[in-house]
Computed example of a mutant assay.
Amino acid sequence: MDRYARWNALLELLTETGRVTVEDAAERLDVSQATIRRDFDQLAQQQMITRTRGGAVASGVSYDLPLRYKTAKHSEEKQRIGTAAAAIVSPGMVVGLNGGTTTTEVARALAVRPDLASTADGAQLTVVTNALNIANELLVRSRMKIVVTGGVVRPQSFELVGPLGGGILREVTLDVALLGVDALDVSLGAAAHHEGEAAMNSLMVARAKRVVIIADSSKLGGHAFARICPVERIETLVTDSGADPKIVAGFREAGLNVIVA
Rank of each mutant, 00 (worst) to 15 (best):
Arg37Pro: 05
Tyr63Gln: 14
Ala44Cys: 10
Leu11Arg: 00
Glu12Ala: 08
Gly18Arg: 12
Leu10Phe: 01
Asp41Gln: 15
Ala56Cys: 09
Thr15Lys: 14
Arg38Pro: 05
Arg6Trp: 00
Gly55Met: 06
Arg68Asp: 14
Arg28Ile: 06
Gln33Asn: 09
Arg51Asn: 08
Val61Phe: 00
Ala34Cys: 01
Asn8Pro: 00
Pro66His: 11
Asp64Arg: 06
Ala25Leu: 09
Thr35Met: 07
Ala26Thr: 03
Thr35Pro: 01
Val22Trp: 05
Ser62Trp: 00
Ile36Gly: 01
Arg19Ile: 10
Asp30His: 13
Gln47Asp: 13
Asp39Gln: 11
Gln33Ser: 10
Val22Pro: 00
Asp24Leu: 13
Gly54Cys: 07
Leu29Val: 08
Gln33His: 07
Ala5Glu: 08
Arg28Met: 13
Leu11Lys: 00
Gly18Ser: 09
Ser32Val: 07
Thr52Tyr: 02
Thr35Trp: 06
Ala56Asp: 02
Ala58Asp: 10
Ala26Phe: 09
Gln46Ser: 14
Gly60Val: 12
Glu27Met: 11
Pro66Lys: 12
Thr17Trp: 10
Asp64His: 14
Ala9Lys: 05
Gln42His: 09
Arg68Phe: 14
Phe40His: 04
Arg37Asn: 07
Arg19Met: 08
Val20Leu: 11
Gln46Pro: 01
Val31Trp: 10
Thr35Asn: 04
Thr52Asn: 06
Val57Phe: 06
Thr35Val: 15
Val61Leu: 09
Arg37Gln: 14
Tyr63Asn: 12
Ser32Tyr: 07
Gly55Gln: 05
Arg28Ser: 12
Asp64Leu: 09
Arg68Ala: 06
Leu14Phe: 03
Gln47Lys: 14
Glu12His: 13
Leu29Met: 11
Thr15Asn: 13
Ala9Asp: 03
Ala34Tyr: 06
Ala44Tyr: 05
Arg19Leu: 08
Gly54Met: 05
Ala44Gln: 04
Leu67Asn: 09
Gly60Met: 12
Ala56Gln: 03
Glu12Ile: 07
Ala25Trp: 03
Val20Trp: 00
Asp24Phe: 08
Val22Ile: 15
Leu13Glu: 08
Val57Thr: 15
Asp24Gln: 12
Gly54Gln: 05
Ala9Cys: 02
Ala5Trp: 00
Ser59Glu: 15
